[in-house]
Simulated scan of single mutants.
Amino acid sequence: MEATPTTFQVNGAVIRKLRMKAGLSTAEAAKRARISARYLNHLENGYRTRMRPGSYTRLRTALGLPADSDQLLALAEDPPEER
């Protein structure tokens, strides 16, 4: 059984894109996810990049994504090439 991560690293640009696609303002999406609009704004602008599991789940739900979706997650950077 896998343990739940303590935080999720998210992609703010994807969050903004999905929020806008859903037709939600920052305030509306934040209210649905039970997070502050300022926190959501910080995520979207890259000032913050990590979310706790509860907040992450609520935001994913507020944006209408399925439970198994990982669309909000930041992709791991490719390892540097060897010379």
Rank of each mutant, 00 (worst) to 15 (best):
S55M: 10
M51E: 05
R16A: 05
F8R: 10
D78N: 12
L24N: 06
L40M: 06
T61K: 15
A74T: 12
S25C: 07
L24C: 12
G46M: 03
T26V: 15
R52C: 00
M20R: 14
I35S: 04
G64R: 02
R38D: 09
E77C: 03
H42R: 13
Q9F: 03
R58C: 04
M1V: 11
L73N: 10
P5A: 10
A22F: 04
P79V: 07
M20I: 05
A62T: 00
R19G: 00
P5S: 12
K17D: 07
E28R: 10
R50L: 14
T49M: 07
G12Q: 01
R58K: 12
D68L: 02
R52K: 15
V14L: 03
M51T: 07
A22G: 02
R60C: 07
A37R: 08
I15A: 07
F8Q: 06
L40T: 11
I35Y: 08
K31L: 14
Q9K: 10
D78S: 08
E77S: 09
S69R: 03
L59R: 04
E81M: 00
G46I: 10
L75V: 14
A74C: 09
D70E: 14
L65E: 08
E2F: 05
E77A: 02
A29I: 01
E2S: 12
R52S: 05
H42L: 14
G12T: 00
I35L: 11
R50N: 09
A62W: 05
I15Q: 02
S36W: 01
D68T: 05
A3M: 11
T6S: 13
N45M: 06
R19W: 03
Y39V: 07
V14W: 05
I15W: 12
M20N: 04
A30S: 08
P79M: 07
R38I: 15
E2V: 07
G12F: 00
I15T: 03
R38G: 13
K31D: 15
R50W: 07
A76W: 01
E28C: 01
R52F: 10
L75T: 10
K17F: 03
I35G: 02
S25Q: 02
G12L: 02
F8L: 14
A29K: 01
G64C: 09
L40Q: 06
H42S: 14
R48E: 09
E2P: 15
R16G: 01
E28Y: 01
S36M: 09
